[in-house]
């Protein structure tokens, strides 16, 4: 009983923490996530048409027809089939599924991350910001080809711009995800995937990897800053003159497995415009960055696994 008492004491504290504001998926920051939320409400709502009555029936029937009430209620032990009920039992789910499937197909057409028709409608004249993303073990590398800038574990984009993301990975599959902002898309070695999104207003978000990729996976997060176009230009300016980065430097210092505790950002000047393509080609040619058992086991230890970032 003492344990239950402890739980009772802790309960208000824990409840207070479970506020709805933590559930970030309910607070989208751009049209893509807003559409996802819209469909969530729509589909869940339609499901409720059948779930709520069924749930009530599953609670009400056992009470109503409990054996202790046998003198009050009808008992039909041989009633085992009814065309009406069977037609309804198949028909109602069928109708609901038809509507839901139609909605789902339309939803996925609208937000196809490769080239979402949704953004063409919602933000037709938005300027395009291209970012190439490389997931390494275990950091996020963001390449701004137009700005000749490379950042690690920080994605800064102009608010209101349409961000076209190309994704790949050095060695393992990772999920690229910014809740409230962008659909989840996998970053895969030797492959190239795409994601597209608009962040409507300036703000700060967190992105992270969603597909397990090894010992440093839990630390694979990056800060996302949506800033005004003027601030974006200023931000680009402020990192002019950072250390140069070409494929050789990337291969030697960034790609080998390492954990960036605390996701400390670092910045480079892109000197090799083909870097993204070279990473894909290297993976296709069989390039791997072997993770030894020793590194796997030691990864929790700050000293054993060198912190990456600026060299």
């Amino acid at each position: 009983m003492r344990v239950f008492g402890l739980v009772a004491l802790l309960a208000p504290l824990m409840l207070a923490g479970c506020s709805v504001h933590n559930m970030v998926l309910f607070f989208p920051a751009g049209p893509m996530a807003a559409t996802e939320l819209h469909y969530t409400y729509l589909i869940t709502g339609i499901m409720m048409i059948v779930i709520v009555p069924t749930l009530l029936m599953s609670l009400w029937f056992p009470i109503k027809y409990h054996i202790s009430r046998q003198h009050k209620e009808k008992y039909t032990p041989d009633w085992t089939f009814s065309y009406v009920i069977e037609v309804l039992a198949w028909g109602i789910p069928l109708g609901i599924v038809a509507v839901l499937a139609w909605l789902s197909v339309h939803g996925i057409q609208a937000i196809d991350p490769w080239n979402p028709p949704l953004l063409a409608k919602a933000a037709p004249n938005a300027p395009v910001e291209e970012v190439d993303v490389i997931a390494t073990d275990w950091q996020w590398v963001f390449i701004y080809p137009a700005e000749k800038l490379v950042t690690i574990d920080e994605l800064t984009v102009p608010a209101g711009a349409r961000v076209d993301v190309k994704l790949t990975s050095t060695q393992n599959m990772n999920g690229f995800y910014i809740p409230q902002v962008a659909p989840m898309v996998d970053a895969m070695p030797a492959m190239q995937t795409k994601d597209t999104f608009v962040i409507s207003q300036p703000g700060d978000f967190t992105g992270f990897s969603t597909d397990f990729s090894g010992a440093g996976f839990s630390w694979m997060r990056f800060a996302v800053h949506a800033v005004t176009p003027a601030d974006f230009t200023a931000w680009v300016q402020s990192h002019q003159g950072a250390a140069p980065l070409d494929y050789a430097a990337f291969d030697a210092h960034i790609a080998p497995p390492q954990v960036n505790y605390g996701a400390k950002p670092s910045y480079f000047t892109l000197t090799d415009p083909k870097l993204f393509g070279e990473v894909i080609t290297a993976a296709q040619m069989g390039k791997t960055y072997p993770v030894s058992q020793a590194l796997n086991k030691a990864v929790a230890d700050d000293d054993a696994a060198p912190t990456a970032g600026a060299q």
Binding site: T168, M191, Q192, K274, F276, G277, I280, M285
Partner: peptide, 15 residues
């Protein structure tokens, strides 16, 4: 069709 890198990128590669 969608995850293979663009031929443009591949041809521009250093290989």
């Amino acid at each position: 069709g969608r995850t293979m890198p663009d031929p443009a990128i591949m041809s521009s590669m250093a290989m």
